[in-house]
């Protein structure tokens, strides 16, 4: 689930516009080929500043090889109230999990 402040954005628009600085979400790829992971957020006035701030805040200890920054307002998030209708129905559908296959002998990490 995304951090709470993103979820709040929708209902808290007034507060967001009063705060002049834009919030950007930071995604960092730790190694080539791996997926970018959400690390946190930064304040910045423009794209370049967002990228540099993200670099300064989140990659000081050699955490990454690539950074994405996305304006928080561009992220669409489900809200806690959606949780039951979104996710509960998959609970009782065991056939969606590949648990009915026999494991080949010697296969590991499955």
């Amino acid at each position: 689930m995304l951090p709470k402040h993103i979820q709040k954005n929708k209902n808290n628009k007034d507060k967001m516009t009063k705060d002049k600085s834009t919030v950007w979400e930071v995604f960092i790829q730790s190694k080539n080929g791996l997926a970018h992971k959400h690390f946190g957020n930064v304040h910045a006035e423009d794209k370049e500043m967002a990228l540099q701030n993200a670099r300064d805040l989140y990659t000081r200890r050699n955490e990454g090889s690539c950074i994405w920054v996305v304006k928080s307002e561009h992220i669409v998030s489900s809200v806690p109230e959606d949780e039951t209708s979104f996710f509960d129905p998959s609970n009782d559908k065991v056939y969606r999990h590949p648990t009915f296959y026999k494991m080949p002998e010697g296969a590991k990490h499955i």
Binding site: S21, V42, H43, A44, Q52, N53, D56, L57, R60
Partner: peptide
């Protein structure tokens, strides 16, 4: 001036 810039300058 901001937390982010504070860290940038210190870096």
């Amino acid at each position: 001036p901001t937390l982010e810039e504070d860290i940038a300058l210190s870096n």
